[in-house]
Design a protein around this nucleic acid. Structure first.
Lengths: 224, 224
DNA sequence: TCGTCCTATTATGTCTACAAAAGACAATAG
DNA sequence: CTATTGTCTTTTGTAGACATAATAGGACGA
């Protein structure tokens, strides 16, 4: 059913994508066990390729692993969030420095595509998709720096954040602020288009604080 | 403190370590194929756990992977090196900013341990071990920032650099400059101990340039 | 002689099965 | 009644075998 019969791509890759989707959907609660056999059955594959996919996801920081006890949905602590936001700020500022370099040529087409997608999701009120679009938006900004390693790792960090939001937030309440989240990113986009770099850096820093996350759209269930 | 939980390392983990050692020893040349069966035989294990280990190493950026064509030792391009050095500088400067914060308490014991180890290797003239110590030294500096994600990713980047050095350098000639490399890090260590942060930042930036890599100890075989 | 197609071999992808370890539950002893 | 130990069940770890795709080499034709 969900098996799109993508045999070009290896079974491991598509399994990894499926696992990512499951995790980011927020249906599994924090710390819950991810058993191999049941997941393999659910995906319709055998355990060896599934185990490779789990290793992959683990490397992306979206799963915890204890040697003879299997995989678990990460239990996100205050320390984790601080680490991610700390790194996020550093990487964003670095990217903006590179981007703001005089002789850089910027292709903002992708950015606008993502933004319009975010708008549609915001109108519908699908907070999970809006959050996903936010990840894409910020990743696209980072992509402008033209460093593939930076882009890859930055996206990993944001997905970790996204997983935390998905597993810790009560999504019923968050739909109300989804419009506001979209407006914020319109603002960020404008600063980039108009090349107002100092303001952009300040805005991105303010945008990525723990307070802004708590205050904007998500009601935190875990004790920070 | 010692870990009181005695969890025996899985076969996958030890295989991954073995593969890392093989890669970083520089015996395999850039772009060469890493066949599963022969490697499994060499390590004395079967292919399933080996494949998991390969996925792991691939996630660390120490192996290339093409869907139905297997794994290869990465072919490092000029772009790759620039990306790594670019990120390295950004992360080091960020770490130094955190470290130089007034109320930070620094434990420099590990740094000195690594430095003395580097000295011994330099005296013997073992350039491969000196380079490994350099990786450890810089990682320890980053560790002072107290961000485990930063430390992990920074180390990954440095190992990618180390792999490039191992596979592209002629190690016979590099042994002569090993002493100089050690001296450089004594200098860096001093700047940190004396908390001369501005000088430290400048020194780390200068230390991590492409020119310094080319000029200090390593003869580049690939065309940059 | 060179190019192309077919075949054969090799290596990767996947699956089934077996072994071993950790956790749970029950039974017995204090 | 409680705690401890032993067994049983569940799940992870590992191995071997089979299927399939890609590549290399040889043969045939132009």
């Amino acid at each position: 059913m969900s098996d799109n019969s993508i045999h070009q791509e290896s079974l491991v890759s598509s399994a990894a994508s499926a696992i990512r989707r499951i995790l980011l959907s927020g249906k599994l609660e924090m710390g819950s066990k991810v058993a191999e056999e049941s997941l393999a059955a659910q995906l319709g594959i055998s355990r060896p390729p599934l185990r490779e996919a789990l290793r992959l996801i683990h490397g992306e920081g979206l799963l915890e692993h204890t040697p003879r006890r299997g995989y678990n949905v990460p239990v996100v602590t205050q320390k984790s969030i601080r680490e991610i936001l700390d790194l996020r700020e550093a990487l964003e500022l670095h990217a903006l420095s590179v981007i703001s370099h005089p002789d850089a040529t910027l292709n903002l087409a992708n950015l606008e595509t993502v933004l319009s997608r975010m708008k549609e999701h915001a109108n519908v009120g699908d907070s999970l998709e809006v959050i996903s679009s936010i990840t894409d938006f910020h990743t696209e900004v980072i992509n402008l720096a033209g460093n593939s390693r930076l882009s890859t790792y930055y996206r990993q960090l944001l997905l970790q954040l996204q997983l935390w939001l998905a597993t810790s937030a009560s999504r019923e309440d968050s739909s109300s602020n989804v419009q506001e989240m979209y407006e914020q990113h319109v603002e960020l986009h404008m600063l980039i288009v108009e090349q107002r770099w100092d303001e952009a850096k300040s805005a991105f820093v303010a945008h990525g604080t723990l307070e802004s996350l708590q205050g904007s759209a998500i009601r935190i269930n875990v004790s920070l």
